[in-house]
Design a protein around this nucleic acid. Structure first.
Length: 472
RNA sequence: GCGCCCUUCGUCUAUCGGUUAGGACACCAGAUUUUCAUUUUGGGAAGACGGGUUCGACUCCCGUAGGGCGCGCCA
């Protein structure tokens, strides 16, 4: 097969949302799979709504997800002259024409169509009129002379063969009256000039696929392979909105998800490989194809994302995980305060506790919360459940524990555990009756990593201090 | 309204005419554990509806219902 070129072409009018991220992922995987390239194009022809902040947010989001394009991004607006040139060529060749219809005329057409219960279609009133009839002082647009009869077909790799009657597709505007290109023209010209072989995008563009096919044909260019992938919906099945899932990828970063986990979650939304759920990056790139992309929209499920993220966290190397945690601190509530604890000794403490911490967290944010006790200043304030553990004899057993632990020769998990077990036997208290008050006093919570590991990481002095604090 | 697309457990999905309709998440119960978590065992849970075609349909066709997308001199 010839060299595959895919592209991701967001318009910089907002952040990189989750649907866009998945589109980028699919393009990226497809190009990787075939040893091709994924190009990046910023569709900034809407000067009103495009912002530099949005461009940064999108680039940043892609980078975080590890989905960077090959080569520098192309900015569509910069190519406006080329787009206009193609439009004029089309007029010369007779495949497009100047249209002098005013906004009022168009509004009229729209209203009439609405009244008749038909979709708005330009009626082609300038299609065959001689330009000499042009009203003075009106700047024309250039419209495509679309085929009036027959049908336009998109051989879609995901949707199958989709057909439109040409009478349902009107003569779209290619070049605006101010000389700037429309999206429809710009996309076709850019994809052609960039050598794009495969267009993978959301199925909200399916109809555009038909109209763009007509432009390709008018230009005499070969039409790239198209694949329109289904959209992602919110948990309620409706379009994603700010309310549920239409967050920028940076929001997922701030929620403590790992990029690898998010990628894994996203690739399984619409695509499958038998029963396999977990894919390494390499596996994904080897296995991904368009054939196994489904055609129905998927709902976003945070619980499954969280589960996957937990799997990735548990599989992560402790040092990598610490790094990942530190990386998101600037974006997380309370992250800055936490960062202040992470000097050399703080990092060592956290690292030592990491095995016990990471299996209790599904996100980096939960990891952070679970680690807070390590850096709390004495005396600890216990939460409700922890305080409860010190009632009903808990405090008395704590006293015995202090005595037992004070006389321990070596302060490590094995030795302290042995000491507590001995106490359990001599006092007749079950291990749980001793461990839980211990946990409460040491961490302030009813749950934590293994309590003897906690003891070891906190150290003798701090541990005994925290225990005595609760005896007063 | 018109055009196009979609419809398997609550959710993501497997099934490419013949399966006790499989897996994963979530949920419930049990085991393990010092708590929680991890791990592990088990459980409930699905082919929107109505017609065809066929010896046989989740799978093919038609219709209905529901949902989505599109219908700009936005992208």
């Amino acid at each position: 097969m010839s060299n595959i070129v895919t592209r991701f072409a967001p318009s910089p009018t907002g952040f990189l949302h989750i649907g866009g991220a998945r589109t980028a992922l699919f393009n990226w995987l497809y190009s990787k799979r075939h040893g091709g390239k994924m190009l990046l194009r910023i569709e900034d022809t809407d000067r009103e709504r495009s912002t530099p902040e949005a461009i940064d947010a999108i680039l940043d989001g892609l980078k975080w997800l590890g989905l960077e394009g090959d080569g520098e991004p192309i900015f569509q607006f910069a190519r406006a002259a080329r787009h206009a040139e193609v439009a004029r060529d089309l007029v010369t060749k007779g495949n497009a024409y100047f249209c002098y219809a005013s906004q009022e005329e168009l509004t009229e057409m729209r209203e009439k169509a609405k009244a008749d219960g038909k979709p708005m279609r330009y009626d082609g009133r300038w299609r065959d009129r001689d330009p000499s009839e042009a009203p003075a002082g009106v700047k024309p647009v250039i419209r495509l002379r679309a085929p009036a009869e027959g049908e336009t077909v998109v051989e879609d790799q995901v949707q199958g063969r989709v057909t439109w009657a040409n009478k349902d597709l009107d003569d779209l505007v290619l070049l605006r009256s101010d000389g700037t290109p429309t999206y429809m023209l710009a996309v076709v010209v850019d994809d052609h000039d960039m050598g794009v072989t495969h267009i993978i995008r959301g199925d909200d563009h399916l109809t555009n696929g038909a109209r763009q096919t007509q432009i390709y044909q008018a230009c005499g260019w070969s039409v790239p392979v198209m694949a329109h992938i289904p959209l992602i919906h919110g948990p309620d099945g409706a379009k994603l909105s700010k309310r549920h899932g239409a967050l920028g990828v940076e929001a997922y970063r701030a929620m403590g998800y790992l990029p690898a986990a998010l990628r894994n979650y996203l690739v399984r939304l619409g695509w499958s490989h038998g029963d396999q759920e977990v894919f390494s990056e390499t596996e994904m790139a080897q296995l991904f194809d368009l054939k196994n992309v489904g055609r129905s929209a998927a709902r976003f499920d945070f619980a499954k994302l969280a589960n996957l993220n937990g799997i990735y966290m548990r599989q992560s190397d402790d040092v990598d995980l610490l790094k990942a945690l530190e990386d998101i601190l600037p974006y997380v509530e309370g992250g800055e305060a936490f960062a202040a604890h992470l000097d050399a000794s703080g990092r060592a403490t956290l690292l030592a506790m990491m095995p016990g911490l990471k299996e209790r967290a599904k996100t980096l944010v939960e990891l952070l919360e679970g680690a807070q006790f390590l850096f709390m200043k004495r005396p600890l304030v216990l939460d409700e459940k922890a305080a409860g553990l010190l009632e009903d004899g808990g405090r008395e057993r704590l006293m015995e524990l202090v005595t037992a632990l004070e006389s321990v020769s070596q302060w490590d998990a094995a030795t302290t555990e042995a000491a507590v077990r001995v106490l359990s036997e001599t006092s007749g208290a079950k291990l749980g009756q001793l461990a839980q008050p211990l946990r409460a006093a040491l961490t302030g919570h009813a749950t934590s990593p293994g309590i003897f590991d906690v003891l070891a990481v906190l150290g003798r002095e701090e541990s005994l201090g925290r225990l005595r604090d609760q005896l007063l």
